[in-house]
Nucleic acid binder design. Structure first.
Lengths: 154, 154
DNA sequence: TATTGTTATACTCTATAACTATA
DNA sequence: TATAGTTATAGAGTATAACAATA
């Protein structure tokens, strides 16, 4: 039934290479702003309110807690984030953006957005809106709801 | 102007994790069919007509030519692909699917498609069609047109 | 001299284990 | 004993270099 028309590559086979290319497009922009990919993810992950532990931040941005330590050190030395010991639990460090960190994050994000808009301009306006809406819906699902065992959730 | 409404994560920040989750969802299905991710990519890359060199196949599926040799060896031993020396150029090996290879590829692909449909069912029908159309458009672009230096193409 | 296929090597990224200091 | 942060180590995946055969 409509085999011919339904034929399309696997979702992963389309998403993964495009995702990789998008990362490749971001890297030189981030480099111009003096940021690694993970450093940028950290700045984005801190949002507006402080985060209570490095582990929580790491988890939120999909990194290992050991992975981001070097980036945190660097960002702190450059005055882009604050890392203050929590008085209530001296094991933990309260993480927050400095004004300069916020500015750099916004500048990098704006440059990336500009680049993305040029790519998205290739899509018809209606498709483009639906694409972003759908992508956002999928990316907001718990990841193990996509990856998890189908037998587990019926 | 409409900052609030336009706010969305970076494209890469949405695509990459979803892509990873889709791969994670595929892996157990492929394992049930005795295929690695790259072996599956090889079966898909061979399509219907033979491919003239391993390098060309590797390039077509986005792999390094050295990366797929082990998979080609395995697939050949299991009778899923043919690797016959090209009489016209004895350096090259003509690659093609055997009937069993075609059957296994189709079975794996059908199982993956079934899983994907369950995920896509979360999207409204119209968004879903537009999403697939847009994703396909983007994935069919030359990748360096996404990743390439914006100064290069104006 | 260039190219196909191959093997061996090095590199990058990530995950694991082990340590300290707090709780 | 359990957890936050850290360091050191090991593993997976990928790319690079070097080689034999052929053009």
């Amino acid at each position: 039934m409509a085999d011919e028309q339904e034929a399309r590559p696997d979702l992963a086979a389309m998403m993964v290479p495009v995702g990789r290319a998008l990362v490749a497009a971001e890297l030189p922009i981030l480099r111009e702003h003096g940021l690694s990919m993970w450093a940028y993810a950290v700045l984005l992950g801190l949002k507006e309110e402080p985060v209570r532990t490095q582990s929580a931040l790491a988890k939120a941005i999909g990194a290992d807690k050991t992975r981001i330590i070097g980036d945190l050190d660097d960002l702190q030395e450059r005055g882009l984030i604050r890392r203050t010991p929590d008085p209530a639990d001296r094991r933990a460090r309260l993480l927050s953006l400095t004004p300069e960190g916020r500015r750099l994050r916004d500048a990098a994000r704006a440059a990336i957005r500009l680049r993305e808009e040029r790519l998205l301009a290739r899509l018809p306006a209606a498709d483009r809106r639906a694409f972003l809406r759908a992508l956002r819906t999928l990316s907001e699902l718990p990841l193990d709801e996509i990856a998890g065992d189908p037998a587990a959730d019926g």
